[in-house]
Design a protein around this nucleic acid. Structure first.
Lengths: 347, 347
DNA sequence: CTGAAAGCGCTTACAG
DNA sequence: CTGAAAGCGCTTACAG
């Protein structure tokens, strides 16, 4: 039972005393300044090792009025899609001088506002935001008005002149519809998502594009809003199946919705990929594992996260606010839920 | 194009000047001290609002030699299981005075050491660690020796007197084996995981317990190590199927390994739950979605994360190092991959 | 109840 | 090439 002694922190003054130099010199050594004579540097470094000195970033940050904290503010971390995005962000920040503080807003605007304030109290160098549904331009002002760079990820904010990294939702959705049309489907539905999310407008817009391109007509009740959850997906599918002109295929707002839709289907005695074609969106890990494997639009969340982080880093570096947009690709991944592998509609 | 002016930070001095008090008084108001006269408080608060003052936590932390940063150091954030754990931790930290800095070590010890250093440079108030495989007691010293509380999550570190929050791996594994034995299996394998991980010792140990309790004999080559990945799971299953005494059932180190094992099975023309019984471990979200739905041991990652965070918060509060352990429950969830729903072995 | 003063651990012109 | 000094934005005894 050695009583563990907690040594009070070693500072540059301790180093200076021991090495017989001033703390200015120690500071220069630590920051790698070329001004310091090699011999002096060596002596100081020896003492640094000897005393087990640890740099105090908080003190340095205060002095320089900078910060090495970056906010990673995610709308829903329980969705594996956003978790992947977070992994990408974290990965791209490794090796940079910044560390990510993470916050899960759970689509809650009040919580998001709290988080913004915390970021400011910490003088965050920048923020990557997957905005909670309903986030508006004035909410972002809390961050942008003080010159903190912000990069939106996955979702945009209406009317905001903010940088963003998003997949090509519109194009991806249109391609999914074309694929379904090629398989012979004439009556399609778009399931899930709510209008408050920018991705909904883009994906359902692409759905409409695809319908038009395929020379089909867009039925007004073909677009069925529902929360982007499994339950929402199931509800939307139930609604679709009750329609007078019953669709034979659906593009879902995201993979989670698609999972719910597949469940609802089977509760009706219908099998996805055989009796009804389903296409998801995102390509989360589960998509390939589920039964039947889900045809979906892959957007590569990890890569989008990396992009967002790199964009933020660049903006922090240049120091002046700047609006950039990166549109990532959205690729159709054909698996079995659309029925393509079984030669089209099974009925 | 209004050129956006970035106002230099408003400080308590600005508030003091404007309110006609000293900065000491402003500080007292901000910290909610009861000493301040109500009238003075009101005046100061009005100015705080008027000037849009934002508290500078970095400055306060420097002065008080405290910090509100907590490290969340995760071995593999791409595994949805650990992502769920992270969600639990973050959730429990909301409303506390601490914010989580996240780092994904990717099972890399060098990276983990780097992260520890960063935590010290930030004077972290505490650390929640899912240790990278192979982490030893001396690695933890970097954190513990300076009195920073640490809570291990999911994995222990051999010989370390550190607090930990772990599921009852041993018991869960034993129960899985009993279940399999009840279904008629006599020849079982344990697939995946490597000895460097404490969970491997515990889960494979529980496997052995279960074998003994069922009155079976533990074949020396029944425990097949492999990386805890899909590829590892597939490799382990291939190996198992090449054994002279071919097993008819397997407990897998975790669900990811189980997914790989199921794939390998189908490449051999075998179906999980029909030709071969599979049980996973963890109960990640995919487990219920996959085909066949995976029988597994649920450990409730989110709740374990919450527990770990609350334990850490308590330790930070009491201020003196203390070793506690929380053992979470591990419940058998019977789905289809074990064949129970189809009446035992299908052959 | 309020203010003056010291100090947390750094960095950065400025002198020499 | 190195040191003395000022200061980042707070908190906290201490006096009054």
């Amino acid at each position: 039972m050695s009583s563990l002694k907690i040594p009070s922190r070693v500072t540059i003054i301790d180093i200076a005393d021991r090495a017989g130099v001033s703390k200015s010199t120690v500071s220069l050594v630590i920051s790698g300044s070329p001004l310091v004579k090699a011999e002096t540097r060596r002596r100081v470094e020896a003492v640094v090792d000897e005393l087990g000195y640890v740099y105090n970033r908080g003190a340095a940050n205060l002095r320089t009025a900078r910060s090495d904290i970056v906010g990673m503010v995610i709308n829903d971390l329980t969705n594996p899609f956003f978790a992947e995005l977070a992994v990408g962000i974290e990965g791209a920040l490794q090796g940079s001088d910044y560390i990510p503080v993470i916050a899960n807003t759970g689509e809650n605007l009040a919580r998001q506002a709290q988080v913004f304030r915390t970021m400011r109290e910490h003088n965050a160098a920048g923020v990557i935001l997957c905005p909670a549904g309903g986030t508006d331009n004035v909410a972002l002002k809390e961050i942008t008005s003080v010159g903190i760079p912000i990069v939106l990820a996955m979702r945009r904010v209406a009317g905001a002149a903010a940088s963003a990294v998003v997949p090509n939702n519109r194009d991806g959705a249109a391609r999914a519809v074309e694929h379904l049309a090629r398989l012979g489907h004439r009556n399609l539905a778009f399931l899930g998502g709510v209008a408050a999310m920018s991705a909904f407008a883009e994906r359902s817009g692409g759905f409409a594009d695809g319908i038009a391109r395929a020379g089909l007509v867009l039925s007004p009740d073909a677009i069925i809003e529902a929360p982007p959850t499994k339950a929402g997906g199931a509800a939307a599918m139930n609604h679709a199946l009750s329609l007078p002109l019953k669709p034979t295929a659906a593009l879902c707002f995201n993979d989670i919705v698609a999972i719910g839709a597949v469940h609802a289907l089977s509760r009706h005695g219908l099998e996805a990929g055989v009796d009804f074609a389903i296409v998801g969106f995102d390509d989360i890990a589960e998509a390939a594992q589920m039964s039947p494997p889900l045809t979906t639009i892959a957007v590569d969340a990890t890569r989008l996260g990396e992009r967002a982080a790199r964009m933020l880093l660049r903006q922090i570096e240049i120091g002046v606010p700047r609006v950039e947009t990166y549109i990532g690709e959205a690729r159709l991944i054909v698996r079995e839920s659309c029925g393509a592998k079984r030669g089209g509609r099974g009925n």
